[in-house]
Simulated scan of single mutants.
Amino acid sequence: MAVGINAMPVTFVAHALAIIAAIMVLVWTISFRGGLAWEATNKNLIFNLHPVLMLIGFIILGGEAIISYKSLPLEKPVKKVIHLVLHAIALALGIWGICAAFKNHNESGIANLYSLHSWIGIGVISLYGFQWLYSFGLFFYPGGSANLRSSVFPWHAILGLFVYILAVGNAALGFLEKLTFLESGKLDKYGTEAFLVNFMAIVTILFGALVVLTASAKSTSSSPPVDDESNYSYSAI
C-alpha cells in the first residue's frame, strides 16, 4: 500500500542529501585522509577508494535507481531501463569498492573478512548481484510471462528494499568501524574529522530513509494502467 504522499517532493530532499553525502565522503578521503589511488606506496590511499565507491557508487546510485523507478514522469519502459542501468552501475562500483578494501588489506598484511561489517558487506553485494541478474532475465530480457512477472514483482520489491536497507545500515557500521580504528590511533574524538564522519553517517541514513519513503509513496504518474505491468510499483509491497 502506498503512503499518502507524492513521491516527487520527497526526492528533492533525497537528491540534496545525496549531494551532501558525496561531498562529505570526498572531503573526508581527500582532505583528511590524503587522497585516492589504486596503486600507491601509502596503502591507505587504496583503502580510501572503498568508502567513496561504496557510498557514491553503491548507496547513492543504488538509491537513485529506486527513486527513478517511482518518481520520474516517464513511460514505464524508459524508467525500467534507467532503473536497470543505475543498479548495474551501482553493483559494478560496489564490487570495485570491495576489491579496493581487499587490495588494501592484502598489500598491508591485514586479515580479510574478520569484522561484522565485512561479513554483511559480502552478503549484501551477493544479494544485490542475485537480485539484478534474475530481474534482468525476468523483467527485461528475455522476460517472463505477464502472470509470472506480476506474481514475482512484490517479492522483487521486498527483497530490493531489504537489501538496500541492509546496505545503508552496513555503511553506517563501516563508518563506525573506521572511526573507531582512527580514534584508537589517537584521532581526536571531538575533532573535526570525527564529527565529519559521524555526520556523514547520519546523512547517509537519512538519504536511505527517504529512498524507502519514496518507494512507498504515490507515483508521480497519473496516467491509467496501459499494460501488463500496471501493478509494477514499490507500493505493491
Rank of each mutant, 00 (worst) to 15 (best):
M1S: 10
A2Q: 02
I5L: 13
P9I: 07
V25L: 04
L26Y: 07
F32E: 13
F32Q: 13
G34E: 07
W38Y: 09
E39H: 11
N42Q: 12
L45A: 03
L45H: 13
I46G: 03
N48R: 08
N48S: 13
H50I: 01
P51K: 05
L53Y: 05
L53G: 09
M54F: 02
M54R: 02
L55W: 03
I56N: 09
F58Q: 13
I59W: 01
I60C: 04
I60E: 03
I60F: 04
I66M: 09
K70T: 09
S71C: 07
L72Y: 08
K76E: 08
P77R: 03
K79P: 05
K79F: 03
I82W: 06
L86C: 07
A88R: 04
A90W: 00
I95L: 15
W96H: 03
G97V: 07
C99K: 15
F102Q: 10
N106H: 14
E107Q: 12
E107A: 10
S108A: 11
S108Y: 11
S108V: 02
A111H: 11
L116V: 15
S118K: 02
S118G: 15
I120C: 11
I122G: 04
G123L: 12
I125P: 11
S126V: 15
Y128A: 12
L133Y: 01
S135P: 07
S135N: 07
S135K: 05
F139A: 01
P142I: 03
S145Y: 01
N147H: 08
R149Y: 01
S150E: 09
F153N: 02
W155A: 06
I158T: 00
L159V: 09
G160V: 03
L161R: 02
F162T: 10
Y164V: 05
L166H: 00
A167K: 00
L173R: 05
L176T: 07
L182P: 08
L182G: 08
S184M: 10
G185H: 11
K186F: 10
D188A: 14
Y190N: 15
Y190E: 15
G191D: 10
F195A: 15
F199L: 14
I202P: 00
V203I: 15
A215L: 03
A217V: 04
K218T: 14
T220P: 05
S222G: 13
D227Q: 04
D228C: 01
E229P: 00
S233I: 00
I237V: 15
